[in-house]
Design a binder for these strands. Structure first.
Length: 730
RNA sequence: GGGCCAAUAGCUCAAUCAGGUUGAGCGCUCGGCUGAUAACCGGGAGGCUCUCGGUUCAAAUCCGAGUUGGCCCA
């Protein structure tokens, strides 16, 4: 409610006897406009104690939903409360405007199918389209927030696409580099073959999908096996012997490099008979019966028993050696090794391992010093290294691989209809593939202790969010892959010499526009330069006779918002506010941001500055449907705040949002309760009207009512008669 | 599959951390008022505290196992 009621009351006096939220709200908006209420409030607090609130930037790919409405309403309430207490509050709203989700929306709009369409359209044009789209969405969000009655600095939001903000990301990244926390490395990543880029784990959506399920025999090399282990009995060695593996991804078999076993488990070699032929199969002891049944063997006898440990070093031939002549064959390849990820109770107890694809396989492969063989390109199509399969999309190759294995007699069994939890790209729903590629990392695992210690410097409401959820996540967090092979993002500011050794000391990491203008060979105006790919890709640096070119990748969009505490203050361009205010006093977001923004900020800020960038965190819940289901725009399961406003008004909606749920708890939206809030406000309305029936109606009171009048009317409602109240007023 | 959080009256929540007669508002119901009237005032009913076990003199509360829902991770 406005502090000075007089002008407003004149306006309200004209409305009818019933509380009409729309009328009241419009009256308030007009009043705010007339007296520049927001500007004046801020001006009056200018000399107050500072309070550095940082707005978590909503992503500009759609309209405001109930969750963002709740979030902004909570922020609005608390900022108003702080201002009532005299604080000079930083209230710059922000918008997260880069990233793959916007690219895919623009691709849809332009009817593009893949990266080649973008290249044909022109990178710069595409970036312009993305910018226009993001700005358009921003306008929608911003007008919604204003319409909800939120007071923030709408004239000057921070945008992650502005040069001064992008520079803040460069600066942070440069600092991390100076601390030795940036490196390039191969990693097994989730690759979206359509978007042709790495996808973060939290961007992978999982669903049950039917997959082929095959049992494959890998032929053991006789002599080597006997040599490697005394355990292999002569009897077992007297006929063809095989390791039996099971997989749901036949397309990864070309990349097979080793077979993993559980060192402590007993494996049996069984002589099995089928169609009058005999062969020896190695399977984990608990699984023998089941596997042989699946393979439709008629009879078997156990002829050998060895532990996984004893099998280590056994050599085998690649089952697709003819089709994939370049298969992994270096030092130590095509042997049996132990690995933690083997479960002897699962399938055959032997695991086909391809360090060029799977994450665990990759890590174990690295430990063992094995060659990383990945014959698949960023588009999910086999490369030349895949021999006969070159040019085929990996999932389409499953049938070919199965047929080839079968023709050689290596296919023990093939079943269909097996369902596994498969990852899909969150934006385009394309099935992801695991491949190993070169990526850029901030090696947060090197500063794990510092991260965990910094958590202690923040207060969380509720506290369990920090001590359970957040700490667990930070403890387990892997190195942060910050590179994306896309267009609409902050370009990674790394310039490399032509024959880069891999040593980060030989790389140039640029920290801001000033430095960029100074170091590049081209003429660049630091004031006006745009930092997107279209501009910086063409810039080169020549120092000591060596020419450096920029790596083509852009940052993971999570890195953008991770620098918000200094990006909000336009640091490093403007240093004064940063020195006075940083770190943030408070951030306030929903619990999904534990692994999102709460984490990315801790990671980035600790890497760059060794400190946590916020003092207090308020974690609120999710806005769910009245029956408790999660809202989903794509499934059409949602409550639209605009509809709520239309039915009940802004104040009732806000009152409802502010009245529900304990800290950290989800809210179930309730139409009933929102209506109830409207009724409660109606009571207030009636109280005000009641007062007026007793007051002179011909003129407005001479004395402007101050805050004390509210106290007075409170005590009046609880006691004295209308008459005495009226006389009190005079 | 794992982690965290939740479940209490028809609805939205409180009481749970630190065990001691389960509360509030709305709704419902009965009555009053009838120049605030889609309002106001007074009375009342309404709970195996999600389920099953355990600890205790005593459990909504502590412990264990489930169910359902939410978020996150695999």
């Amino acid at each position: 409610m406005p502090a000075r009621i007089t002008p407003g009351m004149e306006r309200f006096a004209a409305v009818d006897d019933q509380y009409d939220p729309e009328d009241v709200e419009n009256g308030v908006f007009e009043y705010w406009d007339d007296v520049d209420a927001y500007e004046q409030t801020k001006a009056h607090r200018e000399d107050g104690e500072t309070y550095f609130f940082v707005d978590g930037p909503p992503y500009t790919s759609g309209a405001a939903h109930m969750g963002t409405t709740w979030n902004k309403t909570l922020k609005d309430l608390y900022i108003r409360y702080l201002r009532m207490r005299g604080y000079d509050v930083t209230d710059r709203p922000g918008y997260d405007m880069h990233g793959l989700p916007i690219e895919t929306k623009v691709e849809e709009r332009l009817d593009f199918e893949n990266k080649k369409d973008i290249e044909a359209f022109g990178e710069e044009n595409f970036i312009d389209e993305c910018k226009a789209f993001a700005e358009e969405q921003l306008e929608g969000l911003q007008s919604d927030f204003q319409d909800f009655g939120v007071w923030m600095d709408w004239d000057d939001p921070y945008k992650t696409v502005n040069p001064e903000y992008m520079e803040a990301a460069w600066w942070g990244f440069q600092r991390a580099h100076e601390r030795g926390l940036v490196e390039q490395g191969m990693r097994s990543i989730n690759q979206c073959p359509r978007c042709e880029t790495a996808i973060a784990n939290n961007e992978v959506e999982r669903s049950e999908v039917g997959k082929p399920s095959i049992y494959v025999k890998f032929p053991l090399r006789e002599a080597d096996r006997r040599e490697a282990s005394d355990g292999a009995s002569d009897e077992a060695a007297s006929s063809e012997a095989y390791l039996v593996i099971w997989t749901t991804t036949p397309w990864t078999i070309p990349a097979n490099t080793f077979v993993a076993v559980d060192g402590d488990v007993t494996y049996q070699g069984v002589r099995a008979q089928k169609d009058g032929e005999e062969e020896v199969l190695y399977v984990a002891e608990p699984r023998v019966e089941e596997v042989l049944k699946t393979g439709r063997y008629e009879d078997y006898e156990v002829v050998d028993e060895v532990t996984g440990e004893e099998m280590t070093g056994w050599k085998y031939d690649h089952p697709l050696a003819d089709e994939v002549p370049d298969h992994a064959s270096g030092e130590g390849a095509l042997q049996v090794y132990t690995a933690d990820y083997v479960d002897a109770e699962d399938q055959t107890g032997l695991v086909h391992s391809a360090p060029g694809h799977g994450e665990e396989d990759f890590e174990r492969g690295q430990e063992l010093g094995l060659e990383i063989f990945c014959p698949v390109g960023s588009d999910g199509v086999y490369t030349e290294q895949a021999g006969a399969y070159e040019g085929t999309f990996v999932r389409d190759a499953n049938d070919d691989v199965i047929a080839d294995l079968d023709s050689k007699g290596y296919l023990l069994a093939s079943e269909s209809g097996y369902t596994v939890n498969e990852g899909h790209c969150w934006r385009c729903d394309t099935g992801i593939v695991r491949i190993v590629t070169d990526q850029w990392f901030i090696t947060v695992t090197d500063i794990k202790d510092e991260l965990l210690a910094n958590i202690e410097d923040s207060e969380w409401y509720p506290q369990w969010a920090r001590d359970n959820r957040f700490r667990d996540f930070v403890e387990d967090a892997p190195d942060w892959n910050v590179s994306r092979q896309r267009y609409w993002g902050i370009p990674i500011p790394i310039w490399l010499p032509e024959d880069w050794s891999g040593d980060m000391d030989d790389a140039i990491v640029v920290g801001d526009r000033e430095e960029l203008a100074e170091r590049v060979d081209q003429d660049v105006d630091p004031e006006s330069v745009d930092l997107h790919k279209g501009t910086v890709d063409d810039l080169t640096i020549t120092e000591d006779g060596t020419t450096y070119t920029r790596v083509p990748d852009v940052f993971d969009v999570w890195l953008d918002s991770s620098v918000a505490t200094w990006g909000t203050l336009d640091y490093p361009q403007e240093a004064e506010a940063f020195e006075e205010l940083w770190p943030a006093d408070l951030i306030m977001e929903a619990h999904d941001q534990t692994r999102g923004w709460f984490w990315s900020q801790l990671g980035m800020s600790t890497a760059a500055m060794g400190e946590i960038p916020y003092k207090q965190v308020l974690m609120h819940g999710y806005a769910n449907m009245p029956d408790g289901r999660g809202m989903s725009k794509s499934k059409g399961i949602l409550v639209d705040p605009h509809e709520v406003i239309e039915k009940h008004g802004r104040d009732p909606m806000r009152l409802f949002l502010l009245s529900v749920s304990a800290q950290g708890q989800d809210m179930n939206f309730s139409w009933e309760e929102t209506q109830e809030m409207q009724r409660r406000l109606n009571i207030l309305w009636n109280v005000a009207r009641f007062c007026r029936t007793c007051a002179p109606t011909t003129s407005t009171p001479k004395r402007p009512r101050s805050r004390t009048s509210a106290t007075t009317s409170n005590s009046l409602t609880s006691g004295s008669s209308p008459a005495s109240r009226a006389s009190n007023r005079r």
